[in-house]
Simulated scan of single mutants.
Amino acid sequence: MSTSAQTIYEKLEALNITLPAVAAPAAAYLPFVQTGKLVFLSGHLAKKDGKVIVGQLGKNITTEEGKAAARAIAIDLMGTLHAAVGDLGKVRRIVKLMSLVNSTPDYTEQHLVTNGASELLGDIFGDAGKHARSAFGVAQVPLGACVEIELIAEVA
């Protein structure tokens, strides 16, 4: 079920993706915690060029922009996961994503926004990237970010 580390890193390179370093927590939490074979990654905010992408879906951010933001979060999550385990080849499965989409009360495409992260994880990890998930519309996300996503992974 797993993909070799070389293949994962080759896929990232082919997509011109460079994994970022782990960002320092902005509050009283850890960026990741491992218990047994599960690694829990704290929520990551949507960023572009190191700056939080601020906005609200259904108001001033389109679904496609939100999807791109979720994809960018998936890249950040993979960078944190790499830091947590040292080698993405140790990832046996992406178990679950939870996505918080800063959206207006009438916006209903949170699932499409979250596909930006889900699709990239599937492309990189193959079958091991297929995961359970939740996508919620929320009134606000820290720092006004348009999307926040957390991840749970199983590792060797």
Rank of each mutant, 00 (worst) to 15 (best):
M1H: 13
S4N: 13
S4W: 05
A5C: 07
A5P: 05
T7N: 03
Y9V: 03
E10M: 06
E10Q: 14
K11L: 13
E13Y: 10
E13M: 11
E13F: 09
A14E: 14
L15P: 03
L15W: 05
N16K: 12
I17T: 03
T18E: 04
L19C: 00
P20F: 01
A21R: 10
A21K: 14
V22T: 15
A24K: 08
A24W: 02
A26M: 03
A26L: 06
A28L: 07
Y29W: 01
Y29D: 03
P31W: 00
P31G: 12
P31V: 01
T35I: 11
L38G: 00
L38S: 07
L38I: 09
V39W: 11
S42P: 08
S42G: 13
G43L: 09
H44F: 05
A46L: 07
K47P: 01
K47Q: 15
D49Q: 14
D49R: 11
G50M: 07
V52L: 10
V54Y: 00
Q56G: 04
N60L: 00
I61L: 11
I61Y: 04
T62Y: 04
T62C: 06
T63S: 08
T63W: 02
T63H: 00
E65I: 01
G66Y: 08
K67W: 01
K67H: 07
A68M: 01
A68L: 13
A69G: 10
A69T: 07
A70H: 06
A72Y: 02
A74V: 00
A74S: 07
I75R: 04
L77G: 03
L77A: 09
G79I: 06
L81W: 02
L81A: 02
A84K: 03
A84E: 04
L88A: 10
G89K: 12
G89L: 09
K90M: 07
R93I: 10
I94D: 10
V95R: 12
V95A: 14
L97S: 09
S99W: 07
L100D: 13
S103V: 13
T104C: 10
P105Y: 09
Y107H: 14
H111L: 13
V113F: 05
T114C: 12
T114K: 11
N115R: 12
N115V: 10
G116W: 00
A117F: 02
S118T: 14
S118Y: 02
E119M: 07
E119C: 00
L120D: 12
I124W: 06
F125W: 05
D127Q: 05
D127F: 01
D127S: 04
K130E: 15
K130F: 12
K130C: 12
H131Q: 15
A132R: 14
R133D: 15
R133Q: 15
S134H: 14
S134G: 15
A135G: 14
A135Y: 11
F136L: 15
V138P: 10
V138R: 07
A139R: 11
V141K: 05
P142F: 02
P142Q: 01
L143C: 02
G144R: 05
A145I: 03
V147L: 05
E148D: 15
E150L: 13
E150V: 10
L151E: 06
I152F: 04
I152D: 03
A153V: 09
A153M: 08
E154F: 04
V155L: 01
A156D: 12
A156I: 08
